[in-house]
Structures are given as C-alpha cells and as structure tokens.
Amino acid sequence: MGFEVLFKGKNMVRLLQGLGVALQISLISVAISIVLGLILGMLMSLKKPFINLVSRVYLEIVRIMPQMVLLFIVFFGYTKLTGRNISAESSSLIVFSFWGTAEMADLVRGCMAGIPKIQYESSRALGLSRLQTYIYVIIPQIVRRLLPLSINLITRMIKTTSLIMMIGIVEVLKVGQQIIEANRKSSPHAAFGVFATIFLLYFIACWPISCLAKYLEKKLA
C-alpha cells in the first residue's frame, strides 16, 4: 500500500517536522492577524469615510486574489523591486498575515455591528460609564461571538499553508513529495501511503481546533 516508506530512515520524523513548519507559520500568522485584525476591525466600526475606503479596497484585494498569487507577488516581486532577497518564510508570514488580518477585521466589524444599539443605551440608562459599558457589556459579547469564528480561521490557515511549498518552503506536503520521489523505484505505491498519512496529520492538527470552535460556539451562544 506504500506505507512502508514511512518507516524507512527518518521519513516519519521528517513528515512531522514538515507539519511543524506548517503549524509554525500558520500560528505566527494567526497571532499577528488577530492583533492587527482587532485594531483594524475597531477602526472600521468608527465609520470614518477614509478608513472605510482604504479597508474596503484592502478587503476586496484579499477576497479576489488567490493566496498563491499573493505569495508569488511578495516572494518574487519584492526581490525584483528592491533587488534584495526575502526569505520564503518571511514572504509567507507577510502574505498569511495580510490575508488573516483582512478576514479577522471583517469578523470583528461584523460582530461589533451585530451588537444592538439598545445594549449601549440600556447600559447608559443604568448609569454605566462608556468604559464600563465596553468592559462589562460590549466586549464580552464580541469575544463570545468572535472566538469560534477566529478559531475557524486558524484551521483554514493551517490548511492553506500547503501552498507555501510553491515558494520553496519544505513543509509537510513537500516532504511527502520528496519521499515519494526518492522511493519511486523501491516503493512504486508510496504516493498513496504518504498522502494518506499527510491527510491524517492535517486531520490530527485541525480536528481538535475545529471541535473546540464548535464547543465554544455552543457554550457561548
């Protein structure tokens, strides 16, 4: 079935290391995206015309551009423009944060818009200050709505990191290809075993996160 190649040499360890690279890039990007997305989302909620225009253009670019094209633009474009080298890892962090920030900001904006005006008014009628209203009433509601949605963003990022092998990063999918290539003669069916294992690895990484999102969604609804 092709699973035997995994036990040759350090193949399994290399696959896991590849998964580690993918997870590392996605988790750093997620962390950056959450922070920047929160800031941008709140700015967007201020409804200032200039911020609205800029953020609309930004969100639209992210929406219509395939992530792979963004990766190529940053990785090759940067070098072309500045004449300096940019590492594939930095490029992917830039692209994934650029994408994640847009998604996160849109989620934050949506959650903030979803808080009815009466929540602010009844807080004020009770004598709560603006700050108290945000701390006790508004932000807890936003976090509850945001948490499951942003966790889903993490799983989507992990899956999309499979693209970064296109700019030469040796992540789990690339390792898999290398193993298959190297064992073409001795194990002609390696492809099945290797990809099935990679499927399993992605599943093990994403499934608990997805369960957590579902659990939180239910618990905090």
């Binding site: 009466i118 009844s122 009433v137 807890p140 905090l220």
Partner: peptide, 15 residues
C-alpha cells in the same frame, strides 16, 4: 435624583 428606564425590548445583557 436619578431616572430608571425600561425599553421596548432586547435590553437585558445576553451574556
């Protein structure tokens, strides 16, 4: 002194 107000709907804090 102070006023207290009750609105038409949806004013309790849902969380």
């Amino acid at each position: 002194g102070k006023t207290g107000m009750v609105f038409q709907s949806y004013e309790l804090f849902p969380h």
